[in-house]
Design a protein around this nucleic acid. Sequence first.
DNA 1: GACTGTGAATAAGTTCACAGCT
DNA 2: AGCTGTGAACTTATTCACAGTC
Lengths: 205, 205
Amino acid sequence: MKKISSRTIARALLYLRTLETLIRDGKDTVSSRELARITGLTDVQIRKDISNFGKVGTPGVGYNVAELKKVLEDIVLAKKVIRMALFGAGHLGTAILKYPAFGKQKLRIVAAFDRDKRKIGRTINGVKVYPVEKAPEIIRKNRVDIGIIAVPPESGQKVADLMVLSGLKAIVNFAPVSLNVPGAVSVRDIDLSIEFLSVYCDTQK
Amino acid sequence: MKKISSRTIARALLYLRTLETLIRDGKDTVSSRELARITGLTDVQIRKDISNFGKVGTPGVGYNVAELKKVLEDIVLAKKVIRMALFGAGHLGTAILKYPAFGKQKLRIVAAFDRDKRKIGRTINGVKVYPVEKAPEIIRKNRVDIGIIAVPPESGQKVADLMVLSGLKAIVNFAPVSLNVPGAVSVRDIDLSIEFLSVYCDTQK
DNA sequence: GACTGTGAATAAGTTCACAGCT
DNA sequence: AGCTGTGAACTTATTCACAGTC
């Protein structure tokens, strides 16, 4: 099978999200044109993306919503639950712990870590906060897939090191600092300041 | 002046962030190679990006940190404060209101909006929460540049409509829903589920 | 020798144009 | 007629290769 670019995968996840709302609305068929209208992408882009995953559509009709969802899920996601560990139970960390959309999905935060004695031992939205030292053990025991960094920038690299040491291969980093990790580990950086500044710049030039 | 792609601008903002830490560390010169090591990009990419903004470096030496920072700031950002308005004072909204890094930057949240009577009138981290109805007036009066959507997905489009109506040209959307807005408005979507799933997929294929 | 800046080459991503199915 | 699927054309972004500066 030809390898699928990470941009295509991100769009596939967007299609999945869209399909879920279509299912809720009782639609059972959708055309690339309509998906385009909803998502803001072009219809060709959508057909091209979906064609990566096989011939799913019916000419003259469109895609069967349930079938397309199944195909995208099978290829883009394994069906198992994806386990995450959160580092940093501050404001942002707590917001992530309480993020409601995870509930309906395969995403599950299985443990949180912090160094603050006052936070350790607490349970936030059903997730227990452990001392950072316990991370390697807990991460391995729970077969965690993704590490989330929501600590201040000066601790970001230390946490990343600990994640690598614990065997994590995927990191989402909210700390505004560039992480140095082995090439086999993939990192998605989300620096809120950069996101805001960057959309603002888009409107200027 | 040739127009600069939005990806280049995003990297420029990353360089700025990096330069700020270099300044804190007392460095006054940096090579593209070193910036590459820190950011994880390539040195050529960095030189190419910076060359978009003029000839700033000194061959054999590198870039003067303060000068490069000034050049990037002048071109990528106006020097003025960038004003933001937040919609939705739930967990995520509150985390954004309390996000410490904005303090040191040009980013300022000037108002928050919510429909929940219990939240309206409160002040979170110095920002007052207003009823949604007041948004157009307050946004115009304060010359807000960016709207932030941190409401549940079912209210996302309504909030986006209100933002467009209020004259906002830049939106950062944390609600997991595709927004329909005029082409002149630029939107940056951050769907946490998609971000997590997508970094996980990167490690799988 | 160590570095920047850049045209040329390459790669990646998107859009076009249309063949083919229902 | 109304769609999907896809090779080919095009556009955008990255990397190479190296001339030129300090």
